[in-house]
């Protein structure tokens, strides 16, 4: 971990009770869901992390508590630092307060996470799906959503697949 990152991490840990994990020189801070907006605001205003590089999530199915991690990847242009903030979310209540007013980019990124994982961002200004059609059922990047793999057609299963495959009208 970068020397200059240590005071920042300590500050967040004291104010928001975060825990720290490290891997390959990267710092991962775990923050509780209700405190995330405060933590992000502090990091943006006081510690100059003005760029939210990525906002995504990860699904640890079949584990249910916490089933998801919402991941905020922050960069500081001024100080040239990076920091990852992770928020564990339970399956029973997949809700995180929105960060769309802290970082404007979070608006679209949160819509994407909602679309792909079904994690609801409370207070989001525009809670629609972004990538999938509006009438999709389910959330594709969850681990229990099937890949939708289609069997390639070989001679031995030629007829079988031919029957199922839809064809358009002329």
């Amino acid at each position: 971990m970068d020397k200059r990152l240590e005071p920042i991490v300590k500050d967040v840990q004291e104010k928001f009770g975060a825990t720290l994990a490290e891997f390959r020189e990267e710092a991962h801070l775990f923050v509780a869901a209700e405190k995330i907006v405060g933590a992000l605001t502090l990091l943006r205003d006081t510690h100059k992390f003005e760029l939210l590089s990525a906002l995504t999530a990860s699904d640890y199915y079949p584990q249910t508590t916490p089933r998801f991690h919402v991941i905020y990847q922050l960069s500081s242009v001024e100080k040239n630092l990076t920091l990852q903030v992770r928020v564990p979310v339970n399956e029973a209540n997949p809700q995180v307060p929105t960060a769309a007013h802290v970082y404007k980019v979070a608006n679209w990124r949160e819509r994407e996470v909602f679309d792909m994982f079904g994690i609801v961002f409370e207070g989001h200004p525009d809670p629609r799906r972004i990538l999938m059609p509006e009438d999709t059922v389910g959330h594709p990047l969850r681990k229990d959503y099937p890949l939708g793999y289609e069997e390639p057609q070989f001679t031995f299963n030629f007829d079988e697949i031919r029957v199922v495959k839809p064809a358009p009208k002329e």
Partner: peptide, 20 residues
């Protein structure tokens, strides 16, 4: 069993990979 984030400068900006 862990995660990394690495980014490069693509012609359009920061192209990052979060890999777990």
């Amino acid at each position: 069993k862990n995660s990394v984030y690495s980014a490069v400068e693509s012609p359009r900006g920061e192209l990052g990979m979060y890999l777990e």
